[in-house]
Design a protein around this nucleic acid. Structure first.
Lengths: 223, 223
DNA sequence: CACAGAAATTCTGCATACAATGAGCGACCA
DNA sequence: TGGTCGCTCATTGTATGCAGAATTTCTGTG
């Protein structure tokens, strides 16, 4: 076992089961819009598309369903989730509850390395903004928020919140991309709060950030 | 289609796929303690135990994993989740964020029928308390909190919060059952707040309820 | 007796096969 | 002509089989 510890911890750990690869790929296809909201997902087709059998696809679909990306009706198939304005507001309500908590926890436990990583994401976002690369920007936005939750150290929260952030990215991509530049100045404020280990401040920065995103969504939705 | 609306909504809807039956049963076994924390879950054994093939079991396991009831390591099997004191505190942090939100939403949208249902659960809980039936009491506690989230009408929140409530029930059963009677007087206050459609009040009642539960857990954990 | 290494066993991962349900379409009858 | 019945096909649900990884047990050696 001694000699295998290296190979099993590097190679073994990186060899993901197909179900996970499929789940990641399906998320990407949905977030990227290649699978449109409301679109029917047929197991055979997805399996063939990805070059796997139906079983990994089915298992991935259970996960995606639990995360809210798809909706499954017994014996009637699976569909990419749609998000009505009402459901978007529902999502914002949950974000308003969880993002301030995540920010506070991050502020209380972030070290210099974590703060630096957040700042690095911010820098990459500036580059993407200059390039007008909205897809990369959306991914970076997700990375930023996900990482805040990871820093916080509450794994249960992170498990819930990271899929939530991805759902929000989907919304961001479909309706509020125009807000991108403004959003990143708010991120800067959140990093400052986390750096200074000020839980209250981080909480209110996160709250204001989500409120601003919601307001932006409401404007774009009512236009 | 006119005549089928009745039959399809009753018969068809109640014919659950095996994966759902299995998932429900596994949750019950875990919550009831028949599958102990840390216990290895072997697909073959579960399949034989439940009289199904491995496939529905595997799909149910993906769901349970997403809900946090089990932990799966690639090619190394699945285990019933353990909950360290730290993880319990993590759970309480999330409950503190979500339960007040759920209570507020419930207060804003509950009708008389919903309030009556909550009161009915409370009555059943009194009977269970008198009988000293702790298992029934734990189930009723879960029903109560789940129903509050359902009343609120935010399906995304409910989808996250109801598994969370079940996780808390697990904790309740294993460490804080003694608190049961006290807990129900707090529920009464929450019902009042919901009945009077007072969102702020409901929020603070829910918050105090979770805080009291956490305090009780801390006492029992440090004893 | 401790321990390294190999064989055997157990279990998971994935694919394939079969059964059953549901959707779509055309024929037939009122 | 409109509607319903029955057939056909597409798709999901469930089971089984097999390959490979992980774990355990056995065996020989120091």
């Amino acid at each position: 076992m001694s000699s295998s510890s290296l190979s099993s911890h590097t190679l073994g750990a990186t060899h993901l089961p197909l179900r996970d690869v499929v789940a990641t790929e399906l998320r990407r296809l949905i977030l990227g819009g290649e699978l449109a909201p409301g679109e029917r997902l047929i197991e055979d087709r997805l399996a063939e598309l990805l070059g796997v059998s139906r079983n990994p696809v089915r298992e991935a679909m259970r996960v995606l369903s639990a995360e809210g990306f798809i909706e499954v009706t017994a014996r009637r198939g699976a569909f990419v989730s749609t998000m009505s304005a009402q459901e978007a507001m529902n999502l914002f309500d949950v974000r308003l509850a969880l993002e301030p908590l995540g920010a506070r926890l991050a502020a209380l436990s972030a070290g210099p390395a974590q703060v630096a990583e957040l700042a690095a994401i911010l820098d990459r976002a500036r580059l993407a903004t200059d390039d007008g690369n909205l897809d990369a920007l959306a991914d970076l936005n997700t990375d930023f928020h996900s990482y805040v939750f990871e820093i916080g150290g509450n794994n249960y929260l992170a498990g819930i919140a990271i899929p939530m952030v991805k759902r929000a990215q989907w919304l961001f991509r479909h309706s509020a991309a125009a807000r991108a530049p403004h959003s990143w100045t708010e991120h800067r404020g959140l990093i400052e709060a986390i750096r200074s280990a000020d839980g209250e401040f981080a909480e209110s920065e996160a709250r204001n950030h989500v409120l601003a995103a919601r307001a932006s969504f409401l404007r774009s939705a009512t236009d």
